[in-house]
């Protein structure tokens, strides 16, 4: 058996004149949890729907377990119902005219399983999402969070090998979303499934994925582990979209050195050419550390956020944002030396 579950190659999807997905390639390994992350309109949902068979691509190929589901050159496009994948929809798509049980049993009934098997599988799936006590409830009488659980149970009940998630948590309120995130991660671990997850919420993407693909205007910006994406953003877009980062303009002066606007020399990692470095707001210390890059400035504004304090610091290279734990507060106007490790000073491409 090949270690690759899903293989997407040079995928192009058009909506009339508009190109939604512009030559995207990636693979998903067995049991891997991959997230497509990006702002709305970046093509992430379209890519996911193309894998499900709900969107007709115009070029490239999609393979699942080595079998071509879509192949432009072979003029092959397997309809959604024959791809054997499963999907959780953004709107949950829980059928309001059925009970919770009937919703979850749907995929099993389509597959003409015996009544006993259906019962076992439905109950197992409902147990996993702690919804068994509501099995006979009409689906239209469920709260948002409960509908979400039913949608999840339905998606895993027929033991699919691949489950696609289209922003499944985006309609929940913040607190419930955080809870469901934990549960979802737990569920992914327990079931041997491969998942592709779509979200515009970078926190969610970093929290629940083995690997993240950052997309923008139909192309892939960067593929990597959550730590990779956060610590070593490759482009300005990734640095800006994932987490919060300061972008400092300047020019490369040698191998691993960078002259910021205003004259300060910074040691960098990352690419070899570019005109900007990114420094995460959380990685900046306000006490000088030996061996670090250092910038002198003064506090222009302080905002208390509770979990952290945000300072805006005026430096020769521009204004930098610094987030610190809410202790040892500095007053507005106070002089300060910003200090950050060369490891966290990432030269951006282009």
């Amino acid at each position: 058996m090949s270690p690759t579950r899903i293989e997407v190659t040079d995928l192009v999807v058009r909506y009339g004149e508009q190109i939604a997905v512009h030559g995207v390639s990636f693979t998903v390994g067995r049991g891997e949890h991959l997230t497509l992350l990006g702002p709305s309109g970046c093509g992430k949902t379209t890519t996911l729907r193309a894998i499900a068979g709900l969107e007709q691509p115009s070029a490239g190929s999609i393979r699942i377990d080595g079998q071509a589901m879509y192949d432009a050159s072979a003029r092959r496009n397997i309809p959604a119902e024959q791809r054997g994948v499963s999907m959780v929809f953004q709107s949950y798509a829980v059928w309001p005219h059925m009970t919770v049980y009937d919703n979850v049993a749907y995929g099993l009934r389509v597959r003409k399983q015996s009544a006993a098997d259906i019962k076992t599988h439905v109950e197992r799936a409902l147990d996993l999402v702690q919804m068994r006590h509501l099995a006979d409830r009409a689906a239209s009488k469920l709260s948002g969070g409960q509908q979400q659980r039913v949608a999840l149970a339905r998606a895993i009940a027929f033991s699919p090998t691949v489950v696609l998630f289209d922003e499944p948590l985006s309609n929940l309120d913040a607190k419930l979303r955080a809870e469901m995130r934990v549960e979802l991660r737990e569920l992914q671990r327990r079931l041997d499934i491969t998942s592709v997850y779509v979200t515009h919420d970078q926190e969610e993407a970093l929290a629940i994925s083995d690997r993240v693909i950052v997309m923008n205007v139909g192309v892939i910006e960067q593929i990597g582990t959550p730590e990779d994406i956060y610590n070593r953003p490759r482009s300005r877009f990734v640095a800006d979209f994932v987490g919060s980062a300061n972008l400092i303009k300047g020019k490369v002066t040698g191998q691993g050195t960078f002259e910021a606007e205003g004259g300060a020399i910074l040691k960098t990692v990352g690419g070899t050419a570019g005109s900007e470095v990114a420094v995460r707001t959380a990685y900046i210390d306000m006490v000088a550390q030996p061996g670090d890059n250092q910038l002198a400035g003064h506090v222009r504004q302080r905002m208390f956020h509770g979990d952290f304090v945000q300072y805006i610091v005026e430096c020769a290279c521009g204004r930098l944002i610094v987030r610190r734990p809410p202790v040892n507060l500095l007053e507005e106007g106070a002089p300060v030396t910003l200090s950050f490790s060369p490891e966290h000073t990432v030269l951006l491409q282009g």
């Binding site: 068979g53 709900l54 959604a80 119902e81 929809f89 953004q90 798509a93 995929g107 389509v110 027929f158």
Partner: peptide, 11 residues
């Protein structure tokens, strides 16, 4: 998506 979901479920 109520219909699409049915397709993805194999209908």
């Amino acid at each position: 998506s109520l219909e699409e979901c049915a397709r993805v479920c194999g209908a």
